[in-house]
């Protein structure tokens, strides 16, 4: 896309054959253990490997060793929303519907001029040059669909959940933007509601009447879904895989971004051994204590040697004096 660089069009990568656009295919997981992601192996699923193969690094064998467990995107998209373009990170619908005393819509901007609050939409947060979050991902996701019951969950409700883990040979560490926010749901039916947003006053449209219950009742009726009449808000998160905005190779992720004791980018991914981050505390303690003890014993021994040789010298000179007498 970089005019000064390769200047690829979307369709250079997203090639189209008989109206089938290659891209992310929801039904097909990421390239497995193939060296190249060719259409014969992976259908129309597009991947960096389609052009670059699994071992694109000429200078470093270690980098090529990573591509089975770390996706190209993890290292080559060090940050997203680069170049001063902000991306929405948080959208809290529950605070929508507040007005000034004289009934006017409230619109607040943050220090970068991005919308921070709007009576129609609630609170929002934006960010630029964001460090992605990393998860194991084998290319498949499961989605919470319209009308699905909300499963029991700890923490925020996941609108889509990623599949794959370290032991899955098809899974790799992949970068994500995680979109978080609060959305309306029906606490009795345990279902996210489909609110009716646009419309004239009196139709129940949220952006005209500002009543979540009415908006939900109309929306759910149209969708043919049950609605109990109650509306609450649930915190949600959604995982968006990051694939675009590959940075120039000089800006690729440095080793120590992942291989470091604390605050590494993969800090939260556990269940496997990451050199430089992981260690056996017991072995380290034992090792250093024993090394320290050894040094201590040596110092003691050396001290005793020093003292005894000084004494011997004393005794020798004493002896010589005696002799002269």
């Amino acid at each position: 896309m970089d005019v000064k660089g390769l200047n690829y069009a979307c369709t250079t990568c997203h090639v189209t054959k008989a109206h089938k656009i290659s891209g992310r295919y929801y039904s097909r997981p990421a390239p497995g253990r193939h060296q190249l992601a060719l259409p014969a192996d992976d259908g129309e699923r597009l991947a960096c490997e389609s052009c670059h193969s699994r071992s694109p690094h000429k200078k470093s064998a270690i980098l090529n060793h990573h591509t089975d467990k770390v996706a190209c995107q993890s290292c080559h998209i060090p940050r997203y929303a680069r170049g001063g373009v902000y991306t929405k990170m948080w959208w809290d619908w529950s605070s929508a519907g507040k007005f000034t005393k004289d009934g006017k819509a409230i619109v607040k901007k943050d220090k970068n001029g991005k919308l921070a609050y709007h009576s129609k939409k609630g609170d929002m947060r934006w960010d630029a040059n964001v460090v992605p979050e990393y998860f194991w991902y084998n290319g498949s996701m499961s989605y919470l669909h319209e009308g699905d019951r909300i499963p029991p969950h700890e923490g925020p409700l996941q609108l889509n959940s990623l599949q794959g883990n370290y032991n899955d040979p098809g899974a790799r560490v992949f970068p994500f933007k995680v979109m978080r926010g609060k959305q309306p749901y029906d606490p009795v039916e345990r279902m996210l509601v489909v609110p009716y947003l646009f419309g004239k006053k009196g139709t129940g449209a949220y952006w005209a009447d500002y009543d979540w219950k009415k908006a939900a009742a109309v929306g759910m009726r149209e969708a043919g879904l049950p609605f109990s009449g109650k509306v609450s808000f649930v915190e949600t998160e959604m995982f968006w895989p990051i694939t675009h905005m590959v940075a120039p190779k000089e800006d690729s992720l440095g080793c120590a971004e992942c291989h470091r004791r604390n605050n590494g980018r993969l800090e939260h991914l556990t269940g496997f051994y990451l050199p430089g981050r992981d260690r056996w505390q017991l072995l380290d303690t034992l090792g250093w204590v024993l090394s320290g003890l050894t040094v201590l014993i040596i110092l003691l021994h050396a001290g005793m040697r020093l003292v005894s040789s000084a004494r011997r010298k004393d005794a020798d000179t004493q002896g010589e004096v005696d002799h002269e007498k």
């Binding site: 496997f272 051994y273 050199p275 050894t294």
Partner: peptide, 25 residues
């Protein structure tokens, strides 16, 4: 598993370190 190799390699590194200290002394 990588961790089983790493633990052996690290443990032996400690033994070598101690050996080296004594040897130099």
């Amino acid at each position: 598993r990588l961790d089983s190799v790493a633990i052996v390699h690290t443990a032996l590194a400690f033994v070598l370190l101690i050996f080296l200290i004594v040897h130099i002394y």
